[in-house]
């Protein structure tokens, strides 16, 4: 069951990342933490596998990133934020997802 859930989630990881960043800019670790939080820790993917998704979204200009000083650490953190294109994509994806869930829920009864 957990495996199935993570497969489903992986396909929609892009949308989840965009959704998390919709609340404001975050660095990679914070994005991962927030995803865990929102899914009650049920999202069990390798933490690092977040990064290829972030890089892909950045390459597609849906995200932008820049270095920022982190007060708690002596390292710089790379902070990601949504671009206008990213915002637009998110709203499309959310609409699509809602339509999908609606259609499926008419066929498959929810518990």
């Amino acid at each position: 069951m957990a495996q199935l859930k993570s497969d489903l989630l992986r396909g929609t990881l892009d949308m989840l990342v965009l959704q998390v960043l919709n609340d404001g800019p975050r660095h990679g670790y914070a994005i991962g933490q927030r995803l865990q939080e929102l899914t009650n820790g049920e999202l069990s993917i390798e933490q690092g596998s977040l990064y290829p998704a972030l890089y892909r979204l950045e390459k597609a200009s849906l995200l932008e990133s820049r270095w920022s000083r982190n007060p708690e650490s002596n390292r710089r953190a790379r902070v990601y934020s949504l671009t206008a294109a990213g915002r637009l994509r998110l709203s499309h994806d959310v609409d699509g997802w809602a339509a999908f869930v609606h259609t499926i829920s008419r066929v498959v009864p929810t518990k």
Binding site: Y29, G48, Y51, N70, R75, R76, R78
Partner: peptide, 14 residues
């Protein structure tokens, strides 16, 4: 370079 720095930060935070 970017990845090295970013991954190290992530791990350190965790």
């Amino acid at each position: 370079q970017r990845m090295a720095e970013e991954f190290a930060f992530h791990q350190e935070q965790e």
